[in-house]
Each structure stands twice: as C-alpha cells, then as structure tokens.
Design a protein around this nucleic acid. Sequence first.
DNA 1: TTGTAGGCGTTATCAA
DNA 2: TTGATAACGCCTACAA
Lengths: 345, 345
Amino acid sequence: MNGGQYEAGARGPTLANVAKITGYHVSTVSRVLNGSTVAGVRAASPAAAERIREVARELGYRPNAAAIALRRRRTRLLGVVMARMADPVLATIYEGIEQAARQRGFHPLAVNSWEDPDTRRECIEALMDHGVDAVILGDSTVDGAGLDLLATRKLPFVLVNRGVEGHPSVTCDDHAGGRMAAEHLLDLGHRRVGVLAGLPLAGNAIGRTEGFLDAFRAAGHPVPAERVVRSTFDIAGGRMGAERLLRADPAPTAIFAVSDSAALGVLGCLRDHAITPGAGVSVVGFNDVPMAAELTIPLTSVRSPLRRIGEESVNQLMRLMSGQPAQTLRLTPELMARKTTAPRA
Amino acid sequence: MNGGQYEAGARGPTLANVAKITGYHVSTVSRVLNGSTVAGVRAASPAAAERIREVARELGYRPNAAAIALRRRRTRLLGVVMARMADPVLATIYEGIEQAARQRGFHPLAVNSWEDPDTRRECIEALMDHGVDAVILGDSTVDGAGLDLLATRKLPFVLVNRGVEGHPSVTCDDHAGGRMAAEHLLDLGHRRVGVLAGLPLAGNAIGRTEGFLDAFRAAGHPVPAERVVRSTFDIAGGRMGAERLLRADPAPTAIFAVSDSAALGVLGCLRDHAITPGAGVSVVGFNDVPMAAELTIPLTSVRSPLRRIGEESVNQLMRLMSGQPAQTLRLTPELMARKTTAPRA
DNA sequence: TTGTAGGCGTTATCAA
DNA sequence: TTGATAACGCCTACAA
C-alpha cells in the first residue's frame, strides 16, 4: 500500500539503543534520562549519568509518548472543546490556553463542537479516547450537557468563557460587563434600548444580558421583553437580530450586543438602513476584539481579558490535577467607550 | 499528591475484560472488534462476533489509544502548525482541517509558532514526540525552515496557506489574486498605488505582491520600491505600513494589503488622518474574511476559499499516507469589489 | 549504584 | 475459527 516514500511509523532511537551503546541497563538509562530520584538523591553515578546523557543527545533520543502514556497513564495532552475556532474570541482564549499549557509541558488537543450537543458529546468522547489528562470546555451550556461524561471518568475539567453552576470556571464577570454597557448608555441618555442576547443556553450571554437588564431596571427604565432578542454570537446573528429590533416603531436608540461579532452584524445592518452608528443608533459590543478599535467608526465595547481567561483556565486545571480544588474565577471587564455610542439625539 | 477527587489515569474496560466475560481469548476479541480480516474474510464466526460486540458495547469498551499507538505505530493524530490561531484566516483554514480530519477519524493537534523559526522547530519536534502520523504546516517560510525535521523522520506533510518550492502545498492562487486586485485598481484609474507586502519570507505574501506588481508593470505603471512596504499580516502591521505610505508626497491614491487584517489597520489609519476609504484612498484587502462585508464602508477584498484550502490539505495528506503522491493545489480566488475602492478622484 | 522482571493494552504471528 | 505468545517502549518495585 505504502509506496515507501514515507514511513508513518518511523521511530527514533529508544532507551534500549542508548543502553546498548553505553553498556548500561535500560532501567538505569531510564532513571538517568527522566531524572528520577531515590530518597531524594539522583539515582546514578555522576559519571554514568554524564555518559548516558551524552549518548542520548548524540543519538537524538526522544521519549516515546505512546509508551509513556501506556505505562504512566498520562499523556500530557489537554482536551479543549470550543464552539468554533474561527470565532475570534474563542481563538484568543485558545491562544492563552496553548501558551500556558506549553509552558507546563502540555499540549492542547482542540476540537470544535459547533454548538451542537451531540457533536459535543462526540468531541469529549474522542478526547477521552485519546487519553487526555484533563479537559477545558469553552462551549458549555447552562444545562451542563456532556459534563456527565467527564464526571463518570473522573476526568478533571474546567469551564472557560461560559460558566455552569456548580462547576469550576474561568470567565469574564459577565454580569458586571453587562451593567457597564447599560450604565454607559444610561449616562448618554438612552432609554429605549434593544439587546442582542446571544444563545439562550450560553452562560456568558445570560450574564451579560441580565447585568444589562438589571441596570436598566434599577435606573427605572426596564427593557421590555420584545426588545431582547436571541441570536447567535456571529455576524449573521447580529444582523438578523438588528433587523428585527429596527422593525419596531419607535426603533431603539441604542443596541447592546453580547459579542463584537454580533455588533459588527448590527453595524452592517445599520449601514443598509442608512443609519449612522453613534449619531443614529448607538451600538455597544462585548469583548473588545482588536478589530473594534480600527473600524472607521470605532466600536464601543466591553473589554474582557481573553488571553488571561485562557491562561487561568490552565492554571486551574493544574490545580485540579495536583489534587487541589479549582477556583471559579470571574475576571473584571472594562468599558472601552468609542464612537459608536453618542448622546441620544 | 492527588486528593483522590480525580483519577487522571482512570481507564475504562479493556479487551481483557471483554475476553473474560465472553470466554473468548483476547486475541479473538481484538480481531472481532477491529474488524480485521484474514484472506478477505472476517476472522470470527458470526455468533462469536455478535456476542463479543454486544459485551463490548455493554461494558462501554473503548480502545486504548496509547496501546494502539505503541503497537501499530500510528496515532491518528495530525499535527497542525499555525502562526497563530487568533488570525481569522488561519482559524478558518483550521476549521476546514479539523472537519475533514474528523471525518476520516483523525484528530488535529494544533500548535502556534508565532512566526518564530525556533518556536516552529520546537513545535514540530513536540508534534513528532506525540507521534503524529502526519503534519500540516500553515506557517512555512520560503526558506523551508524546519522542513528538514520532517524529512529526516520521513513524516508526511503538506503545506497550507503558504507554499514552498518543491513541497506539496494547498494554497490560494496568490499570484492571480494579486493580479485581480491590481486590475481592479487599474480599471478605476489608479496609477500611484502602495502595497503592504506582508512578511518577506511568506510565500503567500510574495505571490500576492508579485501578482499585483506584475500587473501594474504590464499596464505600464510600475510601482516603485519605496511604495512596497513590508509588514506583518495583522492590524498593527497594516496600520504602521499605512502610516509610512501616507507620509509620502504625493501619497498613493490606493493601497493593496495582502491580508484583510492589515487592510483593517489601513482603514484605522485613514480614519486617524481623516481620509475616507474609497473617496479618499482606495483600499483592497485579501481573503475576504466575513468581517469585510459588514464594515460601515465595506472592504473590497480578494476572496480565497479558506475552508476548502484546509479540507484539501487533509485530502492531500491522506494521499501521502496511502503512498500516493500529493498534488500542489492552487485554488482560484475571486475579487469582491465593494465600497473601499472607487474611481480615482 | 545497578540489574532483573513484570506489565501497561493491543495486535501480529504462529500454531492448533 | 480460535488460542497462545511475544513484542511495541517505558517505568518501577524489588533484588543484588
């Protein structure tokens, strides 16, 4: 079958090779090369260790991950489930995860669930099949779908981006972020506002929406239900949601979208309606992805520390893996006021 | 160390378990469960096979990936090296890769090289350590840095996004794309144009730039070297490059950026200079990421089939792994003319 | 300080 | 059609 051009299973030198050359036994070589200790002392004579390490280096010895995984029951693989990688928010979180994981000698195995519960289950099962040591979930829904799989195998996991009651998670303080957006709009005099509330089962969307609605209610201007519309987090969702909000008469003077991508969809929609963002209808996004600041009319957005969220999730996972409890972290967002928000005309 | 709450190495039922229950020998169970054949016939009596499969299902048996990897010398893991995941272009290509790989029972192991040669080598080595069956490289430079690592291990690999002479790759037809951008601007009457040429060692940037410059030269309006500036592909790169181009007197009437992110940086820069994209300075990007069409002044861009590029790279890898030669594919781009380009004032 | 032996879960080979 | 056996590369008691 194979033309011989490639040897998929080509392996490098093994411990046995190093052993044969040095004249030491495999077990000795193993001890030296992974620096194991007996009673706190390095378990090999300095001379032996030196020689063995030298030969290993010359040979280009690299430990075989499969063998180690089989023997030690750990792979140093971290499963990561995301809704979709091309979402700039998730991709940035992933970057944080990847970097933090690599610093600790772990590698992320990333899969996309496409917001689909069945696919999510498949993803998690596939990750477990590959023997990942732990899992980071970036696509959870508040019903906790799929978490049972991890629980039954007692596999450590941390939620990221979207929290679920009763499980450790690292997220933005979404409620606070929603409130910031609301207070900004209230300060600018907006009273009749619309909300693109994101997916109904996503914890981050729920938090942001509630924070926003709470603040408006507290200010004495509750937002009626028909001006809170569900949507996906992407551009298309924002566009459709905005279409619907703008159909109302009178239309809202401001729109809060729980993601920047959705906010971008809103901007596209406003353009089609010949409405100027800011001057016509104010728009607030969430996350402050790099694009937001560069738009011709730069987007007001609630900044969330995406990379740090990713990094912290790995930290918490390390805690879990070493037997400590994981904390649930809510990192503080920050409002970046820009030109898509302006005082009510 | 471990508090007992989690068992990192918890494993499910094994072949031995199934064997004990069914009364068959492990080897028989193995033969049944992985559907191996002897002389084209399934190597077990139908009754036995039935029973074994039933027990395996009841027990929730899942094969141990580490053991299989050790024994069969294949992991069904695909290494993927990207410059950075949060780049929307790379993330979209990755989505294509992930989907195609999963359909074939493979899983991508994705690492970010951050455009750094040393990090790239580390990435590739780490992937090999984990025993990936093949590698997709999305961050190659025309000098082929790091490819030697793969060659010495005879590991199949395919380049994606950026080609390198002499190696199979799946890319956009960058030269054609650059030409399209040029012809569009030429049609609109632009003669004094600037180019944000991307990273000097990136094959895609080189192709796009050359295609563009060739077309202008052919039209009798060669672009002088000082109006071709190197840059990174991201927003910051576009912004800095645009600053530099605009400092010239007379400034160019149009700018071609080899990526949409850079084009977005250009738009931000134009805004700061109070120049209207299109009416003032025309701007063309590359890739047509979803954002482009939604901007308040939508971005003219050369669309490249990112997802298909990712999918095709997996196809080519499958060919390589089955001993067939891989093809080098150049998928055709398409110009999406929008509002950031307008006839020369 | 070093060697020996056994096994992690699976599969390939050989024998029955 | 099925069973026995060895081996993939590594690690870890235990013995020397």
